[in-house]
Design a protein around this nucleic acid. Sequence first.
DNA 1: TCATCCAAGATCGTATACAATCTCGTGTCC
DNA 2: GGACACGAGATTGTATACGATCTTGGATGA
Lengths: 227, 227
Amino acid sequence: MVRHDKQNSAEAIAAALAHAIHEHRLAPGSKLSEDEVGEIFGVSRTVVRAALQHLAHSRLVELRRNHGAFVAQPSLREAREVFEARALLEPRTARAAAARMSPAEHARLERHIQAEHAALDQGAAGHAVYLSGQFHVEIARIADQATVAEIITQLVARSSLVIALYWQRRVALCESHAHHALLRALAAGDGSRAEEVMAEHLVTLVSSLDLRDRNAVPTSLREALGA
Amino acid sequence: MVRHDKQNSAEAIAAALAHAIHEHRLAPGSKLSEDEVGEIFGVSRTVVRAALQHLAHSRLVELRRNHGAFVAQPSLREAREVFEARALLEPRTARAAAARMSPAEHARLERHIQAEHAALDQGAAGHAVYLSGQFHVEIARIADQATVAEIITQLVARSSLVIALYWQRRVALCESHAHHALLRALAAGDGSRAEEVMAEHLVTLVSSLDLRDRNAVPTSLREALGA
DNA sequence: TCATCCAAGATCGTATACAATCTCGTGTCC
DNA sequence: GGACACGAGATTGTATACGATCTTGGATGA
C-alpha cells in the first residue's frame, strides 16, 4: 500500500479503503481502527478520521459512537433498496448513453469487458466484481451526466457490499453476457434496447442474490448471540 | 443559534448550516471560515471541519485547498443535471407513495402545504422554499424507500442552491397548485396520475429557472474577469 | 511610474495531547 | 455458585499547537 502523495491524503486513503472493500478484501463487519489504519498509511488519526467520515457518508462504513468504524453490513432492506434505486436510474441513463457514445468510448468499454474476463480466468473474483461495477459507472459517464454518475458510483459501491453478503454461490456469475448485450445496443445507438437490457440485467442481478427474509447475517459472535 | 447538545455536535452544526443555506440565509459563495463558525457554535475547528466536510460531500459547500469552505455555487450544467436526476427518481417514487399513503401521512402533507402558504403570506420566501423542498422529501419517505429518500434529500438541498442562483424573479412561485394536485392524486391512490403530475411539476420548476447558457454567474470579481 | 520581489499576516493541513466513554476482567457480597 | 460493582485498559472525541501554503501590502529597483 505505497501511497505517499501527501496531497489530499485523506481522499487517497478513503479511495484505497473503498477499493479494498469493493474487491471484497475487506469483509463487511471488519473493524477499521483509527490507530491501525493510520499506522498502515503512515498518517495520524486526524487524517484517518476524515477518510472514515467520508466513507461513512457513502455508506461504505458505519461509525458507531465510541466504538469505531466498521465496514458496513447492509441490511436486507437496504440491499433491496439499493437495487431499486439503481433500477430507477440506470436504464434511462443507458438510453442516454446510447445516443452519445463515441468510438473511443466503445473501445474503452470493450477493453473493460475483456479485463473482466481476464480477472475471472485468473480466479480474481473480487477484482471481477469491481470491474463489473465499474462498467455500470462508465456507462453513466458516457451519458455525460456527472451528477447521476456520482450517485450510481455510490450505489455500485454499496452493491458490492450487498454482493459480498448475499451472493448465492450456486448461481454462476453470468454477467458477461448481459454486458456484451449492453455494449451491442449502445454501439448500435439503440437507446430503447439499451434501456431494456439494462433493466433486465439489474433484475437478473437481484435475483441472483439471496434476499429472502431469513434472520440477518450475524455480524460477530456477540451480535449473533443477541447481545 | 443556540445549540449546545454537545452530542454529535458536528452533525448538529452541519444541519444548522444546511438549514441556513436551504432557507437562503447563507448565499452561494459565502465564505465559511473554520474559526468563525467554530466561535459561533462554541466548538473547536476540529468539529467544524468535520461538519464542513460532511456538507462538502453533499455538494452544499465547496472546499478549496488552503482557501477554505464556501457555500457552493452550482454551475449551469450542474443545475440542469440535478433536476434531470430528480426527474429520473421522483415521478416513480410518487407512484410508489400513492400506493402506500396512510391517512396520517395525508394529514401531514396537508399541514405541510398550509405551512408553505403561511410562510409565503408572511413574506418568508426562504422558509417557503425550504418547506416546498421538504414536501418532495416527505413523498419519498412515504414511498418507504429510505435510500431513494436520502438521495432526493440531497438533490432537493442542491436544488435550493440552484434556485438561489438562477431563479427568475418575474415568474411567480406557483408551486402550491402542483403540490395540491399531487396530494389529490396521492390521496386517491392514483399512482399513474401522481407520477404524471410529479414529472410535469419538475418540468415546470426547471422552466421557471433561467438556465440559458449565458456566462456563468460570477463567483467573485476575480473569476468574473477570467483569472 | 511601473513591475518585481519579499515579508508579514491569515487561513488551512496535520500531528499530538488530553478528556470522555466503553469493554472486559476481577473481586466481593449475597 | 451466581450476580453485581468496580477499576484497568483500550478506543474514540475534542482541543490545542505547530507547520505549510496562499494572499496582500509595501519596499526596491529600473
